[in-house]
Amino acid sequence: MKAMSDDTQPAAVRARGIVKSFGTGDTQVTVLKGIDLDVYLGELLLLVGESGGGKTTLLSAIAGILDIDEGDIDVFGVPLSTLPAGKRTTFRGQTMGFIYQQFNLLPVLTAAENVAVPLLIQKAARPEALHRARIMLDRVGLGDRAEFLPKNLSGGQQQRVAIARALVNEPRLLICDEPTAALDGPNGQKIMELLREVGRSPDRCVIVVTHDSRIFHFGDRMANLTDGRIVGIERIKQEGTA
């Protein structure tokens, strides 16, 4: 069931005039040069563009894990850029889920334990956290791999574990950095199907940074970030839609 993104509704993520530089003096590089971007509930937004264009920096800024120099970022109405660091961390833990290119699973934890980590961070009891983690692993098709260590899982399976971990806290915003970059074609497609399903939930949205043109058709919109500026946002025509 698709909840169509609607530009007329209030944005789940609203970024205005984002500027971010690294370094000082002659070596200063401005990576984001006044970014305006809205992301709506029920949509999967693809963030594409050339390498070094500022995609990952923008993603980090939206996630509230990188301080910006100028501009405002509101996530679900909360002004993230002015939120104190401690509250921002708590907000992030309760609202956002992350999927990384290199999965970033803890190698010494089983799949179920890895998935339970966000719940443990929120101080859930371990048995309860592991129970919910196993349910989530079932949902991504890895119920029978719950006690496997990451090293005993394929790349695609590891990324599914990472998705389960990102979703176990029922975050409203899913932030994905090159989620298919370390996967082969078929595995990448499966992962994106899973993410699209999440993105189409009416109370959630997904932002995916990618270079992989094979997965562009999974997005609802695609923002092109080049040289620190958004040079275009296009709506992607979905199969079965007019």
């Binding site: 996630a63 894990i65 401690g86 961390t89 708590t90 992030r92 833990g93 309760q94 992350f98 990384y100 290199q102 970033n104 803890l106 980590v117 966000p118 961070i121 929120q122 971990r165």
Partner: peptide, 12 residues
């Protein structure tokens, strides 16, 4: 990286 991931996931 693992600690960074934990921090990103909300670990203070």
């Amino acid at each position: 990286r693992q600690f960074g991931a934990l921090k990103a996931m909300g670990a203070s």
